[in-house]
């Protein structure tokens, strides 16, 4: 496989080195931010990128769902399903890393802070997406109903990510894109964070393409068995 896709193989190794450098930089290049307990601020280099990738994955799922409703191509259904499952995985990772930070800073893993509440709702919405897929037996009907639900689900994302946290008072530190549109972060930290965002986005692209290929093979096998 690797000999047939040399460019993809090179990109994979670049990604591997890039993520390694980001992990090193997160601990040894960027300083710990002032106003946070101990080294806890370093989690931002992992927490923000996984939350970003979760949102990106849900966007990809929405776009693939729109495409499916237009083209009725199985490949688009596979893309939507895979993107949703990766979005769910990265949302869980964002929840876990956020909880670790909350335990260190506020003394409790869970505080029902508006951002914690929003991510929980997102997890529930995309878990419901998979519940719907499991409830429909006919593959074509499953794909189109899931596509509709995926678009409906994505409509709630801006409300959960941007509106809910601004209606309620939050313990959460200021976001990168804050209400004043100012970056309150040292230059070294900002560089590592941006590098991490690029690295995690690359990781998502790699996982997404591999998972799409696996799912295509799985469905082909399933059809052959039937």
């Amino acid at each position: 496989m690797s000999s047939r896709r040399p460019f993809a193989e090179i990109l994979k190794w670049i990604l591997f080195v890039w993520i390694g450098v980001i992990i090193w930089a997160a601990f040894f290049y960027a300083p710990a931010a002032a106003g946070f307990k101990g080294q806890s601020s370093r989690i931002v280099f992992f927490h923000v990128p996984v939350a970003w990738v979760a949102t990106l994955a849900f966007l990809v799922s929405c776009v693939a769902s729109i495409r499916y409703l237009k083209t009725r191509s199985v490949a688009d259904d596979i893309r939507a399903e895979v993107a949703s499952s990766l979005g769910l995985l990265f949302a869980v990772l964002a929840t876990v890393t956020g909880s670790i930070f909350a335990r260190i800073m506020w003394g409790s893993y869970w505080n029902w802070d508006p951002r914690e509440t929003s991510i929980t709702f997102l997890l529930l919405i995309y878990a419901a997406y998979f519940a719907l897929r499991a409830a429909v037996a006919d593959p074509e009907r499953r794909a189109s109903l899931a596509a509709v639900y995926s678009i409906l689900a994505f409509v709630t994302v801006p409300f959960l990510v941007f509106v809910v946290p601004r209606i309620y008072w939050s313990l959460h530190p200021d976001t990168i894109i804050n209400a004043q549109a100012k970056i309150k972060m040292g230059s070294h930290m900002f560089e590592v964070l941006m590098g991490s965002l690029v690295g995690f986005s690359g990781l998502f692209v790699w996982l997404y393409t591999v998972a799409c290929r696996i799912e295509t093979i799985r469905r082909r096998r399933q059809q052959e068995v039937l």
């Binding site: 709702f121 919405i125 878990a127 419901a128 409830a135 429909v136 409300f159 309620y168």
Partner: peptide, 27 residues
């Protein structure tokens, strides 16, 4: 409309509706 087209409905209506309605519930 979605669950009416699903083969096994059961509690699917609540499962699909409630998460979508949670932002509304907050507002």
């Amino acid at each position: 409309a979605i669950i009416a087209r699903a083969s096994s409905r059961g509690a699917l209506f609540s499962v699909l509706s409630l998460p979508l309605l949670l932002p509304l519930l907050i507002f």
